[in-house]
Design a binder for these strands. Structure first.
Lengths: 232, 232
DNA sequence: TCAAAAGTGTTGAGTGTACACCCATGT
DNA sequence: ACATGGGTGTACACTCAACACTTTTGA
């Protein structure tokens, strides 16, 4: 290990993949850059780590600037560190993804950043290594959502089981059986019947549920837990 | 987003949690520091990211310097970025864990770094935030090993099923049923019978298997795959 | 011949999957 | 009345957990 002063100090950026769900498709919040470098092209939302700022604080700052929301669910994915990943100057990028309720964000904040919600199937080409970041993020989302109940983070506070099913179908791009899905979700006991029904539906109105936040915390890891008891 | 030159450039370190298994207990390769800062105390093995070095290259360099091994299995865990985590100067730490066959490493390299294998239950107190890093790494190892066949990375090329079982028992600190474990492992079809038997055993000699590396690559994600078909 | 470790077999309980059926709503 | 979407029920197949039993080896 070298002495501290021998080593190089480098720029540290944070880049964020923001996922949303509009009821039909999985969406990404992407920035049409009106600033240099690569002005006019698409990129992820990002920023630089500041001098006296914890990494986690910087993440929250960037998410807040973009969406106007606090307490967003986010998760670090990976730190990207190829020497030439940023052509202007060597920059490390700590990359994370965030899940937000697409209806709750501050539209003015999004406009101010020149950001837009884009269907994940229509994702434009992004600058630098941002395409790879999105790929890794999507993979991680799929992995995580299969094992832990993070899907709820993308829905409004009150939601129906069919809505939740559509979300999972959008994430995995596969059809799911309505009846088995319902039973599986209800068997987690994470949902509380609000007594209300979804008035938007044209046919039978679905029950609106909300998340049991206490159980959500406790069961977060137990959701599909490991060493599946099966081996004991 | 600011202009590049407005932002601070900071030191970037890499810290590595090296896991090993001696047949009985899970072990960590820790460094008794014979250099400043915190000379005389215990820490993880680490180093600084160099000027024209990809992050991944730096990881391999650090692992090679410590163990004399190449092509080690490793995985990034998290980047630690609290402002005051390093009292000498602000330093970001990209943290990862590695799994190695404890019998294959270069003992001279380890000695040169003043590193020692320590039972995970006897882990001494470590400097800075290295204790937290070990906690996160162990959690991640447990998570990952339950879903993917990474345990093999800790064993010699040829190994027996009882050895593999002891490894899992060491990782999770729980007893496993011999008969069910054996069937479960064999049902993955990842093991190839070498025709040889473990000569060390005092009683009945167990069959030595080796990993089917091709299937290992293909099945890595399928091992315990998601959206467990159960929902289709 | 006996103890200890390794390998194979079996069974009941529980879970998941693929269905069928019924209910509520607006046109 | 009927089409559409939401909610509940059921049977079969499969998997897992908890066992018993047999085989191999060295002392």
């Amino acid at each position: 290990m070298e002495k501290y002063h021998h080593s190089t100090r480098i720029l540290v950026a944070l880049d964020c993949i923001v996922f949303g769900f509009d009821g039909e498709a999985l969406k990404l919040l992407l920035v049409k850059r009106n600033f240099e470098p690569e002005k006019g092209k698409w990129s992820l939302m990002g920023g630089f780590l500041e001098e006296n700022e914890d990494l986690e604080v910087a993440t929250n700052r960037i998410l807040y600037d973009l969406t106007g929301l606090k307490d967003i669910y986010f998760e670090e994915i990976q730190t990207f560190g190829k020497v030439n990943r940023d052509p202007v100057e060597r920059t490390l990028s700590v990359c994370f993804f965030a899940l937000i309720n697409i209806h709750a964000h501050d539209q003015d904040a999004v406009k101010a950043q020149n950001a837009f919600w884009i269907n994940i199937e229509n994702k434009p080409n992004l600058i630098f290594d941002h395409n790879e970041m999105v790929n890794v993020a999507l993979e991680r989302l799929r992995y995580k959502a299969a094992l832990h109940p993070i899907g709820f983070e993308l829905l409004p506070e009150k939601f129906t089981i069919p809505q939740l099913q559509k979300l999972y179908e959008a994430i995995y791009q596969i059809p799911l059986d309505r009846r088995n899905f319902s039973r599986k979700i209800l068997s987690t006991n994470l949902l509380i019947d609000t007594g209300e029904k979804n008035q938007q539906s044209a046919t039978k109105k679905a029950i609106l549920y909300r998340l049991d936040k206490e159980k959500y915390q406790n069961k977060f890891n137990a959701f599909h837990y490991f060493i599946s008891d099966s081996m004991r």
